[in-house]
Amino acid sequence: MAICQVQFNDDTVKIPEKVLRRDQARLEELERRRNEKESQSVAEENVDYFTATFSAEKAAIEDLISSCANTDHEKATKMLEDATLKTQQLQKFLNDSVMFLTQYELRQAQASVQKLQGSVVERRAEVMPKKKFAFRSRTARTSQPSASMPVGDKDKTTYFVGNAAVHVRASAEQYGFSNVDSQVLIKRSEEIQQRDVLLSHLADCKVILYGSPNTVHIKNVRDCQILCGPVSSSVFVDECTGCTLVFACQQLRTHNTTATQVYLHVTSRAIIEDCHGVSFAPFNWTYQGMDNDFRVSGLDPKRNNWSQVDDFNWLASGTPSPNWTVIPESERISCWDAKEPSS
């Protein structure tokens, strides 16, 4: 890797300029050689090839979506799963081609991918009538309509920032739960797929998010159990206490959090900052359709760095951070469905 990542502690802050410069020169030479090679291969990239492949794939997906109307349930489900997967791959293909496309081509292609994603979700809602979800326990309540409303006001939200009031057409687009007490809150895949989800100001709730959000923010949550399917990018946790969090993600960033357990699958790294009493165990929740959600998320199910937690308040020392621990195997929760929310 050409990037020079320098551990930030008291020693390295004082790296002599000379050493830095020498190292920089070495990296630059490596970089130059790599760039030379790369620009050659980029020159060979062919916009025509992109256009042809992209439109063929797009047509195939549209075919899948439209033909699943005339088939039985099981087949339709399979076809839609297939369409989701193919759309995901198309997005990847597009991402990898960005460097040689014009802004216009990129925008067109991105719009097509988004349209495909939209049609898959729509069609899925048509084909599969929503199952009524019931909990076995009598004490657990299912979510109220008010709680599953998008965050904020119906059509307009005003944010006061400094002296300026910012009006944003916000809420319809942002999904999650806010300001809820003592409830069971559930979202299904079609509501949160590849969206940004916000969970804030919750107390004594059990939250279950089936599906693959793009990113999740969890802020100011107390005594909750939160289960979530694979998240494509980062999960950002701030001001949580007494919680049990169970999810898979690419990055986990935990701030100002205490007395919280995290059952984690993370493909890059987890960090904590200004936390104490946080403990970690490997992600061990499964639900029907999770494998497919993993594919949609783009996360590698076999790559889990749950136990390599970096503490940003504990960089200078050679000793392990006192702010986090591993949950002993004998004390790990293994059955999530049986667990009821605290009352």
């Binding site: 990542q5 930030f8 970089e31 960005v98 690419q250």
Partner: peptide, 30 residues
């Protein structure tokens, strides 16, 4: 979490799916 490292790597045509939270800094010359 704003996406600084991802921008840097994407701009340079690198894989952005393996990026960890940045401890310290990255320097890139291009």
């Amino acid at each position: 979490n704003a996406g600084k490292t991802t921008i840097l790597k994407k701009f340079n045509g690198e894989d952005v799916s393996t990026i960890s939270p940045t401890l310290g800094f990255n320097i890139k010359t291009l």
